[in-house]
Simulated assay, not measured.
Amino acid sequence: MKKSENIIVGISIGDLNGIGGEVVLKTFEDDRILEFCTPVIFASSKTIAYLKNHFKYEINFNDINKINEVAFGKVNVFNCWNETVTIDFGKEDLKIGEYAIKSLQAATKALKHGDVDVLVTAPINKHNIQSKDFNFPGHTDYLAKELEGESLMFMVSDSLRIGLLTDHVPVKDIVEHITSQLIEKKINTVYHSLEKDFNINRPKIAVLGINPHTGDNGVIGHEDDTVMRPTLNKLKESGKLVYGPYAADSFFGSNNYKNFDAIIASYHDQGLIPFKTLSFGQGVNYTAGLSKVRTSPDHGTAYEIAGKGIADENSFKEAVFMAIQIFKNRLDYKELTSNPLKKGERKDYDN
């Protein structure tokens, strides 16, 4: 088992005109976090020095050009570029989008090669990152291509975990995407993630309906009856504790969500609106189902407050700690499954 401080956390810097750089540096200004990990920020020493001076942060960093130069117990900055970057807080800029992708690609390469243990991504602007060489709706889709596994957007906080059947899909296309095969695949991904990443045995999963009132027996759509229910029944017969579909409008207000280890929403806003209402600023976006661990904060670039020094770093900090926790849980799970005699002896890393 790795020592905590030797867990290397790779960090992509995100959109430099947003709040990403601020929340990254705010997180690591408190050097007590270096007792839990060694961060590597993929950007450039010039850029980080500019942000440090702009926000007047007291933070020292180790400037490196090769990943094997990482210094444990220090904040490392891996140089992905050498030129000076013009930062204009609050402005959408295609050039800034290019630097966000350079950082993400370098961090992902290090993650794939095992040079960093986990990846935490600062927010990007989904519009200014698009180019002929990079054509993905966001982090999740790119990482699904680069890393092995079945990716799933999993929004996680202390009291709530919400996965999505469909994520960045236009509302008009949602029903076409939701098939029996997709439902089964996503539920299996959540189920295995709860076991492997969160140390939950025999997890209970709730699934929200596709249509209002789960279709009202076909009055408001038939998909819940013809696609959702038969698939959930099949999964129940296989032994999984899967329940639903539930009407989404009353599920959270009634506190029913507290009875489950995870909830699966049919589409983006059905899941993220209640999640951000209940957990905003403390939640984490975790990409479940991949061969490597990736987390991010539950917010975007927040151009409207960028550069003002008032951004809340708590969600980013939670993303760092959750990445570390999941990495440890996976090591624990691997050890337990390779040695059946140790089952039931899982460690609690929070104590």
Rank of each mutant, 00 (worst) to 15 (best):
L194Q: 06
I7K: 04
I48G: 01
L147D: 06
G114R: 06
L241M: 13
N255P: 00
S296F: 06
P170E: 06
V75M: 01
D93L: 09
Q325Y: 12
V171M: 11
M1G: 13
S254I: 10
G209L: 05
I11M: 09
M1T: 14
P203D: 13
D269I: 14
T86S: 14
F251H: 11
F327T: 09
D141W: 05
L336H: 08
G10M: 11
K236V: 14
I326C: 05
L152K: 02
K2V: 14
L104K: 02
I48H: 01
I129L: 05
S12T: 14
I8K: 12
A302V: 10
D31P: 00
S44Y: 03
T231K: 12
H299M: 07
G163W: 04
K26V: 02
G20L: 02
F136H: 15
G253F: 03
G300C: 05
R294P: 06
V75A: 07
A288I: 04
L152E: 01
G283C: 01
Q130V: 15
H213T: 09
K240M: 15
I220Q: 07
G253T: 04
S151N: 05
Y246T: 11
K172Q: 11
L147A: 14
H139N: 12
F61L: 08
D350A: 12
P230L: 10
E184P: 00
G244S: 10
K52W: 03
D216P: 01
K52R: 13
K186H: 10
T301D: 02
V116P: 02
Y333M: 09
Y191Q: 05
T108Q: 08
A71Q: 10
L164W: 10
Y246C: 11
A100E: 03
G90T: 03
E237P: 00
K132L: 11
L147S: 12
K196W: 00
G218R: 07
G271P: 00
F154C: 04
V156D: 03
L104F: 00
F280V: 14
A319N: 11
T189L: 09
L94D: 12
D31G: 02
K52L: 04
D31R: 13
D332S: 15
G289A: 06
K240I: 14
T189S: 11
E237K: 15
E150K: 15
L272A: 07
S266K: 00
L208D: 04
I96T: 10
L25F: 03
L143N: 04
G300V: 04
D348P: 01
A262T: 13
T189G: 05
S193M: 03
E195Y: 08
S266F: 07
N65M: 02
N53K: 11
D93K: 02
I326F: 06
Q181W: 00
L51S: 04
H222M: 08
K3G: 11
G163I: 09
I178A: 08
T226G: 01
D173M: 06
K132W: 00
E176K: 15
I162L: 08
P137M: 03
K334F: 03
Y243N: 14
S291N: 07
G344V: 12
